[in-house]
Design a binder for these strands. Structure first.
Lengths: 108, 108
DNA sequence: CTAACATGTGAACACCTATTCACTTGTTAG
DNA sequence: CTAACAAGTGAATAGGTGTTCACATGTTAG
């Protein structure tokens, strides 16, 4: 049940939507998401792979997990993070296509 | 040619990707985009519809147009803005689905 | 030309946030 | 138990940014 019609999203939904985009809007955080979207990966592996401090990665991961963009799973000392669901990778792909096609004329 | 594999996007692409998400990450700007995505709409109509100042709408519209999220078309005194391409609405839809489904287990 | 309207723009301010540092919590091994 | 490693957290700071205000630009009508 949407509020009125397709894109007339109600205010709380807009706030939530904006929050999700906002989280993906930081380059460092986006890199972390991209590192998680392929396969589950530990915090320390993200940090070393992206050349970031573990502290910084944890801070971002907390926000991403709170917004349910990523999910966590403990295995011994390490905690593995992965993309929460398929919508995330879908959004990422659509945006990459948008970048790839500067000015196309095959809409409709 | 991507840099390595699917989600190992090269750095300039990440910056561009993050920039797009960042623009959608502000609630006011997101509302403006949503107002444009349905049909072309004039700046003053966006402003009155969303109860914002024309100045503020113009500021946001400039950023959105620079990132090619929206495109502009002049008609007399007014300038009509609309979504740049189908990828934008696609991203919006995917994110809305992500919000709609809190915790689904039907992936793969 | 001038007047009125629509849009664009620059500067300033208040607010937010990404990052770092120091530290704590939790887990495994001995 | 302690030691070592992985992850999480709180505070503080530097930089970024959304908003407003005043003004400039552009367009149409007379």
């Amino acid at each position: 049940m949407s509020c009125q019609h397709d894109y007339s999203v109600c205010d709380p939904a807009i706030a939530q939507l904006a929050d999700l985009f906002h989280l993906l809007g930081d380059p460092t955080r986006l890199r972390i998401v991209l590192a998680c979207v392929t396969a589950p990966i530990a915090v320390s592996d993200i940090a070393s792979s992206l050349e970031l401090s573990s502290s910084l990665v944890s801070h971002h991961l907390r926000l991403l997990r709170a917004a349910r963009i990523v999910k966590s799973e403990r295995q011994g000392k390490q905690v593995f993070y992965s993309a929460a669901d398929a919508h995330i990778s879908g959004v990422l792909n659509d945006m990459l296509e948008h970048i790839a096609e500067p000015s196309n004329g095959h809409e409709a």
